[in-house]
Simulated scan of single mutants.
Amino acid sequence: MTNSAFAFTISSVPFDEDYRPADRTRITTNFANLARGECRRENLRNTLAMIDNRFNSLMHWDNPTGDRYAVELRIVTADLTVGLRDGAETFPLIEILATTVVDRRSGERHDGMIGNNFSSYVRDYDFSIRLAGHIRENPDGGAPDGFGELHGNLFKRFLASAAYRDRFPKPPVICLSVSSRETYRRTANVHPILGVEYGTDRLSRTDDYFARMGMRARYFLPPGGVAPLAFYHLGDLTGDYSNVELASTVATMETFQKIYRPEIYNANSPAAEHYRPSLSRQDYSLTRIVYDRDERSRLAVEQGRFAEQHVIRPHGAQLERWSATAGL
């Protein structure tokens, strides 16, 4: 199969209080999980209000009433088409978020961050199916050989594609939770938006996975936050992005983390100088947003199996050859 038999396309939908996940949406994502059930509209309204409030707390100068800005979100889906014409198959490969910041005073709209959340069917397969099976057979064996290479190369191909470059002028920044398996140490480095930088002596499994995507991690505890976030990026995180862009990703992703990892991100006391996150911590507060974390874990396995059945088994070898040799 030639390179022309693979193509990326991008679509997007608003994430607002009227959002309803499409059938093809990867439903373990933060935003899709919140948008189902009896409390869906209230969940969405409260989540968006939390994001706006957090953004205004970070962008507080010349903002005395703390309500100057609003953050708009769009869910961006990258589809991969495999094959030509009548025999082509299209799969949702990656979902990320794009933010836009609205200045209510001037009416101006500013580009926020592209990336933020990161969802991927192939990543579900890697962690929930491939890695889980490998660990069952090799409890002390670490990750399987080549773990994350296909996903990493597909991600690089996506960023290099005309579909991405024609739409977004900068590489994405992905913002996730820090690992509960690692210890993080506070440094003397402080950024006005990202906050206090933390460091760690070794890469977590997620850090290593994102490294295969060409991204490296930095960890910051934002002003007013209680735990550091992991920022995965290409290039210069603090030099390539404006305060508006950085504040939009902190506001968005810290809000999601407060909802589904409250033990870490809605704890009642901030991270210490030497900090190891724990989901067993009891000293935390809940938000007023309904979220089913157990369901999310079950769905990750189901979606990993979907990727195995529809992507990895029928097309994995071809995708590996294409993604690894397409001039990256």
Rank of each mutant, 00 (worst) to 15 (best):
Y121S: 14
G142L: 11
S120E: 07
C175D: 00
Y125N: 01
G115H: 01
G146C: 09
F155K: 00
G115C: 04
A160K: 03
T100R: 15
V102C: 12
G152I: 01
M113C: 06
A132L: 13
D111R: 14
R181K: 11
N138V: 06
A143M: 12
S106D: 07
G142D: 06
I129W: 13
G146L: 09
F147Y: 12
P139H: 08
G141N: 08
S119E: 10
I114L: 12
E108G: 07
P192M: 00
E182I: 10
D111F: 03
D124C: 14
V102P: 02
G115T: 08
G112H: 05
V102K: 13
R157S: 14
C175Y: 05
Y125V: 11
H191R: 04
G141T: 06
G199M: 09
K170T: 11
N116E: 10
A132H: 14
P172L: 10
F118W: 11
T100F: 12
T183V: 12
C175F: 03
S106Q: 07
R105D: 08
P171H: 06
D111G: 13
D124M: 11
T183S: 15
C175P: 02
I114C: 09
T187L: 04
R104D: 03
G152F: 02
T100E: 14
T99I: 11
P172E: 06
V190H: 13
D111N: 13
N138D: 02
V101G: 06
S106A: 13
D103G: 14
H151G: 03
A188M: 01
I135Y: 10
R109C: 10
S119V: 06
Y164R: 09
I129L: 13
G141M: 08
R186Q: 12
I193E: 03
A162C: 08
D126F: 08
R165M: 10
L150W: 04
G148E: 01
H110Y: 13
R181T: 11
D140W: 09
E197P: 02
V173L: 08
S179V: 09
D103Y: 08
E182C: 04
R186C: 09
H110T: 06
V122T: 12
D145W: 02
A162E: 14
I135H: 12
V178Y: 04
G199T: 13
L159I: 07
E149A: 10
D166I: 02
I129P: 11
H134V: 01
H110G: 00
H134R: 09
V102I: 14
A163L: 10
V101Y: 09
S119A: 15
R105A: 14
V102Y: 13
D103E: 09
